[in-house]
């Protein structure tokens, strides 16, 4: 795929003698909605940390919009348009909700035109601008996490388990939000456990099992794939 926004090629990551990711190649097209699934410990989080730069990689390459980005510090990748949200929300606790968005806007704004207020309105935190993150509910915290990632006006958003621990209706709220972001032109990689959400969201599905990519393709095909079934249901 030559018009891929993100291209991961032969990515390998080891922790001591343990190979957490083994020769992973994935590419994500411009505007695509990709779902990334896999059982616990399959390497999904490591994968996110490797592309966003939190962990250095051992082999392979990561390119964003045609430019090599492995080897860059995380903040440089964010400035190039790769934003991530964290699995457990990590807000800036001493800043207000609005100020939480101001940080990426100041440092990675990339000429985005949305204001703090507009972004908060969009994720449904309109009235909470002056509150501290500590006063937010679980789902509001998730929304803040997404809004902060969006404040960097990214080309690619990597959402790491943005819905874990939420109720059914809350999952739907986040899902609607992600779909809306995608409509605005943001490419999204969603790492998720909740199959209902992944299936509703993804145009394409990639499955990792024990650090290897076992399936990549149409979601309906992937969930019928033998390796995927084996990994999820056992032998």
């Amino acid at each position: 795929m030559s018009d891929a926004l993100l291209a991961v090629d032969g990515l390998t990551k080891r922790f001591g003698g343990f190979t957490a990711l083994n020769d992973i190649s994935v590419s994500v097209g411009q505007g695509e909605r990709l779902g990334l699934i896999g059982p616990n410990g399959s390497g999904k989080s490591t994968f996110v940390n490797c592309i966003s730069g939190t962990l250095p990689i051992d082999q392979g390459s990561v390119t964003l919009g045609g430019a090599r980005i492995d080897g860059l510090a995380p903040h440089q990748r964010t400035r190039l348009g790769l934003a991530r949200s964290f699995q457990l929300p990590r807000p800036f606790g001493s800043l207000t909700v609005a100020e939480n968005l101001r940080v990426p806007m100041l440092y990675a704004g990339r000429g985005g035109t949305d204001t703090e207020a507009e972004l908060l309105e969009m994720v449904g935190l309109g009235g909470k601008a002056q509150q501290r993150p500590g006063d937010l509910t679980q789902v509001e915290m998730r929304k803040l996490e997404l809004a902060r990632a969006m404040a960097a006006s990214p080309r690619l958003l990597v959402a790491d388990e943005a819905m874990a621990g939420l109720s059914n209706s809350e999952v739907d709220e986040i899902l609607v939000l992600l779909l809306r972001l995608n409509e605005q032109g943001v490419t999204i990689v969603l790492i998720e456990h909740i199959m209902r959400a992944v299936m509703a969201f993804s145009q394409r599905l990639v499955c990792l099992v024990a650090g290897r990519k076992v399936a990549d393709g149409d979601p309906q095909d992937v969930i019928r794939n033998d390796d995927v079934l084996k990994a999820y249901l056992g032998e």
Partner: peptide, 8 residues
């Protein structure tokens, strides 16, 4: 999170 928000 600061680093992920583009802060050097």
């Amino acid at each position: 999170a600061a680093e992920a928000s583009g802060v050097p």
